[in-house]
Every structure is written in C-alpha cells, then in structure tokens.
Design a protein around this nucleic acid. Structure first.
Length: 278
DNA sequence: AAATGAACCTGTTTGC
DNA sequence: TGCAAACAGGTTCATT
C-alpha cells in the first residue's frame, strides 16, 4: 500500500491529532510483526507525552521527550485515530494506544492494523536515530536538497542493473516504490529496463526532476489509493487517477496514444510506453 | 561489490 | 460456481 506520498499523508494526518497527547495505555495484541515488537519498551511509554511526528523514508516516527517510536506500514498497514468508545479489536489489529488530550476533546484510540504483518514497530533513544539499523544506511530524501543529478549519476556508474530497480533501492534514494518508479521513468522518458550505467547526465537530471514531481504531485493529491489505503481524514487519495502508466497496460499512452506495455522486473510489475521511453 | 532470488504473511484477483 | 494459482503498494537477507 504505502509509498512515500502515502506515508507523508499519514504523518500529516496524525500530527495535529497526536502532538501534545499523552499515551494513557498501550496494548500489544501480536508482537510478531516483521520484527519482534519490543513490548516492554512500548509499555514503558504509558504516561508519556507525544511531542511530535515526523517521517524518514517510509518510516513514521513518533517523538517523545526521550525516545522515538518507529512505525512501518509494510505493504498492508493502516494507522488511524478514532474517538475511544470501547471498540472491539479488529481482525489483524496488532496494537493500539489510548490517547488523552491534547484538546480536551475526550480520549482517542490510535490503532495499527496490518494483515500481512510486513510492518514494524520499534523504540529507541532519540539521539540514536541516525544509528538505528533500519535508518542509518538510507539514501537521501527524494524531496530534499541531497537528491541531485550528480548523486544519481554517480550511483549509476558502472552498474548494469535496470534503472527502475536502482530507483527502488533505498540505499540510493528512499521513498520510490514500485508504482512511482514506473511513473518516474515515464515522466523522464527513460525506459525502466535501461542499464543504469548507460544513462547520461541529462537523463539523470530528468529522472531526479521526475521523481520529485511525481512524489510531490502524489502528496498534493493525498497519496494514491489502489485498494484500502485511506489517508487524511479518511479521504481517499486521488493520485491514482493521475497515473500515466502504472496498471495501464494495453491502454493508450497519455502522451503519444501508443499502447502502454508491461513486463516483470525483479519480480515486480513494471509499466512503460515503448513509444515515449527510450 | 553487485546481481539475483527467497523470505516474511494474508487477502484478493485471475484462470481453469 | 469452486478451487488453486498468481499476485499485491516493502524490505532484508542469503546465495551466487
């Protein structure tokens, strides 16, 4: 489900709802997510105040005074807040926090539901963020200043791997998942199967610009929704309606009216326009 | 080092 | 209609 725009949408949704709230109770129903949930450390957050929420790559990071809670949604995770009214546990709901405040509008429930359990939850000391095993080797943020054509060109040098796969490598650049990798290549007019090492500086420039615009447009649209993702105030994302190639095999290219093609690359569905992308 | 493929788990869609 | 296979938005790890 979630690529970077979806996670950013979730973070923006959560921020005003949890900042300055106090975690009254923590309940962990299943600790066997992608990695074991450190139950004692999460329980120790009871009584603590959430000071903010931020995002790194596709990780949601809840800030506390001394600690940070890392949450990943995996492929099927959902994270949302509701007024607390004694809701029964939903199928595949693995943990929940009871929140007090911040506005005196009654107790709320932060619920985490993840059918496939590819998601994660971890707790660490604030100052350890850059040393966390899941965070320390990540590439730059695609919307930040460190993601430049030069960085991409150097990452491509001498590599035979397809450019689409390289764009999905979190050590090179974070946040570009399977949907937006195809979309980025389309906007840059670069074929997704092109060996990375054959790209010119001009092509890298186009790819960096395309990755930024695709992700930014998706954030502006509230994230894309293929199935069950709901971001913001339960408003579905509308970026799916703006996809140029993803999932559109056999349909007309929005630019040249040729047929959109697809193939499997590294086991992932890949879409492109053979007429527009060289 | 870099490329490839398997692994984690469940729900939904596709094909016979 | 029923059932099994294929597939799904992510990431790490082991193997070549």
């Amino acid at each position: 489900m979630p690529e970077l725009p979806e996670v950013e949408t979730v973070v923006r949704y959560l921020r005003p709802r949890v900042t300055a709230a106090r975690v009254a109770e923590v309940h962990v129903r299943r600790a066997d997510l992608r990695y074991p949930v450190p139950v004692d450390a999460v329980l120790a957050l009871q009584g603590c105040e959430i000071t903010g929420v931020h995002r790194r790559a596709k990780y949601v990071l809840f800030d506390f005074t001394e600690r940070t809670v890392l949450v990943h949604l995996g492929m099927s995770g959902r994270l949302f807040i509701e007024p607390s009214m004694g809701q029964p546990w939903e199928k595949h709901e693995h943990w929940r926090w009871h929140l007090d405040g911040p506005n005196g509008d009654g107790p709320h429930l932060l619920r985490y539901i993840d059918a496939r359990r590819f998601g994660a939850l971890d707790v660490f000391e604030n100052e350890a963020e850059t040393r966390h095993p899941l965070l320390e080797r990540l590439g730059p943020e695609p919307l930040g200043p460190l993601w430049t054509p030069t960085v991409l060109l150097e990452a491509c040098a001498g590599r035979t791997t397809a450019i689409k796969q390289l764009l999905m490598d979190g050590h090179i650049i974070v946040g570009v998942g399977n949907i937006y990798a195809s979309e980025t290549c389309f906007r840059a007019a670069t074929h997704p199967l092109r060996p990375a090492g054959t790209l010119s500086a001009a092509e890298c420039e186009r790819l960096v610009a395309a990755s930024r615009s695709v992700l930014q447009d998706a954030i502006d649209a509230g994230g894309s929704t293929l199935k069950d993702f709901v971001g913001g105030d339960a408003a579905p994302g509308y970026f799916q309606q703006q996809l140029d190639v993803y999932g559109r095999q056999g349909q007309r290219c929005h630019r040249c009216s040729g047929l959109v093609g697809h193939c499997s690359l590294g086991g992932r569905a890949t879409y492109f326009c053979g007429g527009c992308q060289a």
